[in-house]
Design a protein around this nucleic acid. Structure first.
Lengths: 347, 347
DNA sequence: TATTAGCACTCATCGTCATCGAGTGCTAAA
DNA sequence: TTTAGCACTCGATGACGATGAGTGCTAATA
C-alpha cells in the first residue's frame, strides 16, 4: 500500500491536505496548500495532483466546488507510509509521569488513572481494557459465610486485584469449615495463573481421593463455582468521554447518540480492543475499518500493555478520524510502555 | 404555597398546561386546552386565566404570540398540590420485580441493576448512590502481603460489600503475622458498623496495653490506615445516560455537554443526592431549585432507600424538567421500597 | 358580573430568491 | 510540465414575504 502514491510531491500534497484538515476540520482547497507548506508550485498544479489522489481514493470531494477531505484510505496511507512518528518530548513524558503521583495504588486505580491520563493528554476519550482474570497470578482465596447457605468468595491476585463472587450452597456451612477450605486451597494453588487454577481444580476433582475426602470435595466445588463466571472477561475504563463533545464533527445528536451508546454498552469497544491485543505496538483503526462499530468518523489508536512478557490488556485513545495522529500515536505508545513498567513492579 | 392558586378552574388550567407541555414539549395555547380537558369554557376565558397564572409566576410566555410554558415554580405547585400520585399498577410492579431475576446478587450488582431498572422504566437516566462505608456492618478484615512492605487490606461487610486498600508499611511483615492480626481484629470488631469500628480502634490504641503488645499495636495501626480514607464517601451508579439524548430539549450540544460533564464529575450529583437523604419519601428537585448544578431544565426525582431503620443511600431518576412526574414519582417510590426490602434480607 | 365572540396584532417558522465567494476543471500560453 | 486565466458550480448567507398559531383587547351576551 505504501507504493500506492507515486511521487514525492503527491505524498507532500496528501500530507498537507491531511494536516490542514486535521487542524481545521473543513475541506481544504488548493490555494491554502500552495501558499503554506512551501511546495513552490501554483494552486493549479496542486489541483492536478489532488485530482490524481482523488482517483486513487485517497481524497474525497464533498461537492464539486468544495475542497478535498482525506478518505479513511488516505489517512491509512498517511499513517503507514508518510507520517514519521517522533518521540514524545521529554517535557511531555515528565508531565505524564507526574500524573501518576502518590503512593502505591491499587491496580484498578492505576488503570482508571491511565484512562484519564490518556484522555487529558489527547483531548479525546481514553480507554483501558483491564486484564482478563484468567491471566492474573493467584495469590489467595477466602471464603466468608454471609448467611447460613450463602458464601462469598474473594480471590486476590498477586498484583492485588480483588474479585469477589457470591455462591449459593445447598447445605449450610460454618465459617470454621470455610477457613479450612481456604487454608487448603491457598497451599495447593500458589504461583498459578487463574486459568491454571481452574484447570488444576478440575484435575484434582477427578482424583480418587476426593471421593473419600468430603472436605476436599467441597472446597474444590466451591472454588470451582467462584471461578466459573467471567474470568475470561475484561472490564473497560473510559476517561474523558465529554472531550468528544468538543469535536465539531460530532455536533449532530445522532452521531453522539451512537458513540455514547457504545460507551454504555461497552461490549463493542471491548471486542475491538480485544482484537488489538494480538498485534504488538501501536495499532490504528480508522473509521470504517473497525466494522464492529456502527460509527463512522471514529478512530482508535491502541497499544497493548504488558507485565514481563505477558500481554495483559490494551489501552488507547478514541477520537474522530480527524485526530492528531502524529501527536497521539507516540502518546499511546509511551503510556503503554510506562504502564507496563509500573505493572512490572507490581506483578 | 398550595394556596397560591386561587380557584379550582385555575388549578385545572395549570394542570392542563403542564400535562400538555409534558406531552408535547412545545408552548401550549388556549385553544388546545379549551378543546381537550373538558373545561367547558372558551379559549378567551382560558386566556384570561393563563394571564393570571403568568402574573403569579407559574407560567411563562417565550414570546408575545406564543403559547404558555410552565415555570419551575409552576411545576412545583403542580407537584405539591395538584397532581395526585397514583399507585404503580400491579403489572408494572411485576415487571420491575422481574427485572431483578437470578440468584443471590452482590449488593453492588443489585444497586447497579437498580440504576438500570430506573432508567429503563422512566426512559430517563437512573441514579443510585451507594451506602457510605461508614454505615455498613463489619463482618471481616483480612490482610494480605503483596510485597514485603506492601499489604492489602480487605474489608467485608455483613451484606457482602468488599472494600480493599493498599497500605505501605515501613518494615516488612510476614503473612503469618498478618494472619494473627486479622484473627485478633475479627474477634474484636464483630457486630459494629465501620464508623464504630473506626472509633473503637482509636479507643483501643489509647489503652496502655498497646504500648506493651507490639502485635496489637501494629494490627490496630494497619486497620486504622485501611479505614482512613473515604469511608464517608459514596459511589454513584448511573444507568441509561443515553436516554437523555432522546429529549428534544437537550438537543443542543452545550446543554448536553453540561449534563455529561456532571456525569463524569459525579461529585455534584452526589452532593445533590446526599441532600435528599435527609428527607423521607420522594424528593423532587426542579430545574433551578438544585442550584448545585449549572443545569437548567434538569429535574431529579429521588428517594432514600433503607435497610431496617437505617437510611443507606438514595436512588432516583434524572431527566428534563418536562418529565412525566405522575408516572415517575411512583416508580421511584416503589423501586426504593423494593430495594429496601431486598436489602433487608441481605443486611 | 363573568363569559365569550370577534378582531387586529405579534412573531417564529418556512420557503423562495438573489448574492457571494471559495474552490474547481479546463484551456491555452509559457 | 507548469501555470495563468476564466467560466462554472454550489453551499452558505441573508433579505423578504407568506403563513399561521396564538395573543390581548373590546364589545356584546347570558
Amino acid at each position: 500500500m505504501a507504493g500506492l502514491v507515486k511521487g514525492e510531491r503527491s505524498r507532500r500534497v496528501l500530507e498537507a491536505v491531511i494536516l490542514e484538515y486535521i487542524q481545521g476540520g473543513v475541506p481544504v482547497g488548493s490555494r491554502a496548500i500552495a501558499k503554506r507548506y512551501g511546495l513552490n508550485v501554483s494552486p493549479a498544479t496542486v489541483r492536478n495532483v489532488m485530482a490524481d489522489l482523488e482517483e486513487l481514493g485517497l481524497l474525497f470531494q464533498p461537492h464539486t466546488s468544495a475542497g478535498r477531505v482525506p478518505t479513511d484510505l488516505g489517512l491509512r496511507v498517511y499513517i503507514d507510509s508518510i507520517v514519521q512518528i517522533q518521540q514524545l518530548s521529554g517535557a511531555d513524558r515528565e508531565r505524564i509521569k507526574r500524573s501518576y503521583q502518590g503512593g502505591v495504588p491499587r491496580v484498578e486505580d492505576l488503570l482508571k488513572e491511565t484512562s484519564k491520563v490518556l484522555s487529558s493528554f489527547s483531548k479525546q476519550a481514553g480507554v483501558v481494557l483491564t486484564p482478563r482474570l484468567s491471566k492474573i497470578g493467584f495469590k489467595r482465596i477466602e471464603f466468608i459465610r454471609l448467611r447460613p447457605n450463602i458464601v462469598m468468595t474473594i480471590l486476590v491476585s498477586k498484583a492485588g486485584i480483588v474479585h469477589n463472587t457470591i455462591v449459593d450452597v445447598e447445605e449450610s456451612i460454618t465459617q470454621d469449615e470455610l477457613d479450612k477450605y481456604s487454608r487448603y486451597l491457598n497451599g495447593l494453588l500458589q504461583d498459578l495463573t487463574l486459568r491454571q487454577v481452574k484447570m488444576r481444580l478440575l484435575e484434582e476433582m477427578k482424583k480418587e481421593k476426593v471421593l473419600f475426602d468430603r472436605l476436599l470435595g467441597k472446597a474444590l466445588e466451591l472454588s470451582q463455582q467462584a471461578l466459573n463466571e467471567n474470568i475470561e472477561e475484561s472490564e473497560l475504563y473510559i476517561g474523558g468521554r465529554t472531550n468528544l463533545l468538543d469535536n465539531p464533527e460530532f455536533a449532530d445528536v445522532e452521531q453522539m447518540r451512537r458513540i455514547f451508546n457504545a460507551f454504555e454498552e461497552k461490549s463493542k469497544i471491548i471486542d475491538l480492543l480485544d482484537k488489538s491485543m494480538a498485534g504488538k505496538g501501536v495499532n490504528i483503526f480508522i473509521g470504517s475499518e473497525s466494522e464492529l462499530l456502527d460509527m463512522e468518523n471514529v478512530s482508535f489508536i491502541t497499544s497493548p500493555y504488558t507485565s514481563g512478557n505477558e500481554i495483559l490488556g490494551t489501552l488507547g485513545v478514541m477520537g474522530p478520524t480527524r485526530m492528531d495522529y502524529s501527536r497521539i500515536i507516540p502518546l499511546v505508545d509511551y503510556t503503554a510502555k510506562l504502564l507496563s513498567k509500573m505493572l512490572e513492579e507490581a506483578f
